[in-house]
Design a protein around this nucleic acid. Structure first.
Length: 454
RNA sequence: GAGGACGUAGCUCAGCUGGUUAGAGCAUCAGAUUGUGGUUCUGAGGGUCGUGGGUUCGAGCCCCAUCUUCCUCCCCA
């Protein structure tokens, strides 16, 4: 036997049973996207490395899978280059392509490249795998599927509201209890400005994002280590302690950062989203969470995150508004907003909660047993007839022992087995066995169709 | 990038303070039963104990290295 075969770290094979579950999620998500008027696109698995670098922050750049140039990838690189350049610089010279890290940046590139053919506002969805050179662990893979919905070319906050509706609809259909967390980058910028550290916005947001995990003490320590003054940290405290209803929180934060232009804008956006939501019946609660930061650099307005209520798992859906992502590629003043559903994590959560229907993997309804040449032709005729009636059915390919053929039906959870031997051939019928009850009855192919159509 | 745990049959695992030929359950295949599965009984196949090195008369077990998987941090879907 055996060479030791395996697949790369953080990647997975999917069995038929798993694929049925995954397809169920993809189908649900896609149906909702279509219902809201979004259209599908796909982009290549690989992009030019330069398209991707610099969009995801320092950490993100490190996690991009790079593709070594074909041919002599060392061409033009000297020993001194290797000794003196950073690995990132060398990688840029040896790798002009990379695997996509998310679907938003390739989408922005697509929009810029096809701007003349696109009718704005452009509503698209995209369900494809992405790759990250991260260290795998629970709910974290190196290859995983994102299901993105975005609308680009519209500043209206209605889009944010629509995305919240989509999130609500998807998870309601999947039967998952979730919480939608909402925040706004402008509010975070306002906070940074008020406490006199506008350049520290990223450090601040990353630190306060951790408040649930590591507690206020450690957050303050981290802020200090990032070079924030004691006075600034002091000013930040009431914001970290904020509690109450969304309105109460909005009011309090408004009192603190309402003086800044950017802060005021952020609050206005947030309030108008909440105003919209009052008129819509949602099953899920939307919660203002000022500690929600999200690391991706390109967000400028609303930011979303969805967590499953009953399972410990990272976010299963996230996104936000990006005002200038296309600007980087030469198409300024086009704002977009979108969210991404993490299909793999959703699948993990649903598995843990046993939310998948038990008999989802039943595909074949009827198996014909095989008794030899003449009987095979006899069965084949009926098989074609039954398939024309839309009943998924198959004929066992080998004249094996019946025990084996029935075991196969059993293993495949096929509910009915039809046998046609010499006796049945004379009467122009089959013996149909109900595998659950064990009952057997002689039936013509038409009667079989009638029975299984029920 | 930092830290921790695991690795024995296709799968889940047992294997005593180091001691003959490494076990069990499930799965697979065959038979009991030559046109009827899921229950039962009998039998069979399947292992360089993750890999490499070391200690020892002797290593699945101890030591070192390495790889993998899982988990935590960082970050994220």
């Amino acid at each position: 036997m055996a060479v030791n075969v395996s697949i790369p770290k953080g990647t997975r094979d999917f069995s038929p049973a798993e694929m049925i579950r995954r397809k169920y999620i993809f189908q649900t998500v896609e149906d909702v996207f279509r219902l809201y008027g979004y259209l599908p696109i796909e982009t290549p698995a690989m992009e030019n490395l330069s398209t991707l670098t610099g969009k995801y922050g320092e950490e993100g750049d490190r996690l991009i899978f790079k593709i070594l140039n074909s041919g002599n990838y060392l061409e033009g690189i000297s020993v001194e280059d290797i000794q003196n350049s950073s690995t990132a610089k060398l990688a840029a010279r040896m790798c002009e392509k990379a695997l996509r890290y998310d679907l938003t940046v390739p989408f922005a590139r697509y929009v810029v490249q096809n701007r003349n053919e696109i009718a704005f506002p452009f509503k698209r969805y995209q369900i494809q795998p992405v790759w990250r050179a991260d260290r795998p662990q629970k709910g974290r893979y190196r290859e995983f599927y994102q299901c993105d919905v975005d609308v680009i070319g519209s500043n209206s906050l209605l889009n944010e509201v629509e995305l919240i509706q989509i999130i609500d609809a998807v998870f309601q259909q999947l039967g998952l209890n979730i919480t939608i967390k909402l925040n706004n980058r402008k509010i975070l910028s306002g906070i940074a400005e008020v406490i006199g550290a506008p350049d520290k916005i990223i450090d601040i947001t990353i630190a306060i994002d951790k408040i649930d995990k590591i507690g206020i003490e450690k957050v303050n320590q981290e802020l200090e280590s990032k070079g924030l003054t004691q006075a600034a940290i002091e000013k930040l405290q009431p914001i970290l302690y904020l509690s109450g209803s969304n309105e109460e929180k909005t009011e309090k934060i408004s009192g603190i950062i309402g003086g800044t232009d950017i802060g005021q804008k952020g609050i206005a956006e947030l309030s108008s989203i909440f105003d919209f939501l009052k008129n819509i019946r949602l099953k899920t609660s939307v919660e203002l969470d000022l500690t929600l930061a999200r690391g991706l650099n390109y967000y400028t307005g609303a930011i979303f995150e969805v967590k499953a209520n009953d399972v410990a798992m990272g976010s299963i859906c996230g996104g936000g508004r990006y005002d200038d992502l296309t600007g980087i590629f030469g198409l300024p003043d086009v704002s977009g907003v979108g969210v991404s559903f993490g299909a793999d994590r959703i699948c993990d959560v649903m598995n843990e909660l046993k939310l998948f229907p038990e008999n989802a993997e039943i595909s074949t309804q009827l198996l014909f047993t095989n008794h030899g040449e003449a009987e095979m032709i006899y069965a084949l005729k009926a098989l074609a007839e039954i398939r024309r009636a839309g009943i998924s059915s198959e004929l066992y390919p080998d004249n094996a022992k019946l025990k084996k053929q029935f075991s196969y039906a059993d293993a495949r959870k096929i509910p009915y087995v039809a046998s046609g031997g010499s006796t049945e051939m004379q009467e122009d019928c089959f013996t149909l066995k109900n595998m659950q009850t064990g009952a057997m009855e002689k039936k013509s192919s038409q009667e079989i169709i009638a029975q299984l159509k029920k």
